[in-house]
Computed example of a mutant assay.
Amino acid sequence: MRLSAQRGPRTPLGRLNDAPAEDAAAALLTCCGSERWARLLAGHRPYPDADTLLAAAEEAGYDLTDTDVSEALAAESAHHPLTEGPGALAAHTALRAAHAAYESRFGYAFVICLDALPPAERLDAVLEAIRFRLAHRPEEERAVAAEELRRLALARLRALVAGSGLTRRSPSVPD
């Protein structure tokens, strides 16, 4: 007897639950670049529903070691294209400069979860957040970046199990 429609093999969660461990971990790595995080979540399948998966992901996110955070931040840096979406060219130029200043100061890509903001507000929010966070001490910013990684992982995981498609950078970089 099925407890939830989410468990069926034709749903994204059902496919994640039924996938070989290696494939499930690879899919989860698109949400968070920590191998240990992805393997941990893949190893605890099947999940009866999306809420259970999200709760497990959140808990695993708080258990990230400094090495795990470094690995996830490196994955963000490796997949950190600056898009030329709508908005003024000057704003995108400012965004590139702000990202470069941030990476120069902290040694990893700027991460921020923007899933609560409409696309039209994302560029300004990123610019404002980078400027604010550039003033942080490195250890303070590392904690903020780790929290943003957790938020991004959950947002990406929600998109993955909702079947709405998943892009590596959504919803963290302005459109």
Rank of each mutant, 00 (worst) to 15 (best):
117 L>S: 07
102 Y>V: 12
119 P>Q: 10
129 A>Q: 13
164 S>W: 05
157 L>K: 06
151 R>V: 05
1 M>Q: 05
24 A>W: 08
9 P>N: 02
152 L>M: 13
12 P>A: 01
28 L>T: 01
84 E>H: 14
30 T>S: 15
147 E>H: 11
72 A>D: 12
88 A>Q: 11
95 L>M: 09
169 R>C: 15
126 V>C: 10
41 L>H: 00
61 G>E: 07
60 A>C: 03
149 L>W: 01
111 V>R: 10
13 L>V: 00
58 E>M: 05
81 P>V: 07
138 P>G: 10
61 G>K: 02
110 F>G: 01
24 A>S: 10
58 E>G: 13
73 L>S: 03
43 G>H: 12
117 L>F: 07
47 Y>Q: 00
83 T>Y: 15
94 A>S: 12
144 V>H: 11
90 A>L: 10
139 E>D: 11
175 D>N: 12
161 V>L: 02
73 L>A: 08
98 A>H: 08
6 Q>N: 01
38 A>I: 01
24 A>I: 00
161 V>K: 04
170 S>L: 11
143 A>D: 04
102 Y>F: 08
149 L>Y: 02
166 L>S: 11
102 Y>M: 04
170 S>M: 13
32 C>E: 03
11 T>V: 00
58 E>I: 02
39 R>Q: 15
86 P>T: 14
84 E>D: 13
121 E>V: 06
112 I>G: 06
68 D>I: 05
88 A>F: 04
151 R>Y: 07
155 A>W: 00
52 T>A: 13
167 T>F: 06
106 F>M: 04
109 A>P: 03
170 S>D: 13
108 Y>I: 12
57 A>P: 10
140 E>P: 07
127 L>G: 11
111 V>S: 03
167 T>A: 10
135 A>T: 15
13 L>C: 00
35 E>H: 14
136 H>T: 09
19 A>S: 12
41 L>W: 01
164 S>P: 03
91 A>G: 06
120 A>N: 03
142 R>T: 02
143 A>I: 14
112 I>H: 03
105 R>P: 06
151 R>D: 11
91 A>R: 10
119 P>V: 12
93 T>W: 12
173 V>I: 08
65 T>E: 13
126 V>W: 04
28 L>K: 09
77 S>F: 05
155 A>F: 07
49 D>W: 00
139 E>Y: 06
20 P>G: 15
151 R>E: 08
54 L>T: 05
97 A>Y: 10
69 V>M: 01
150 R>P: 04
80 H>V: 11
77 S>Q: 14
103 E>C: 11
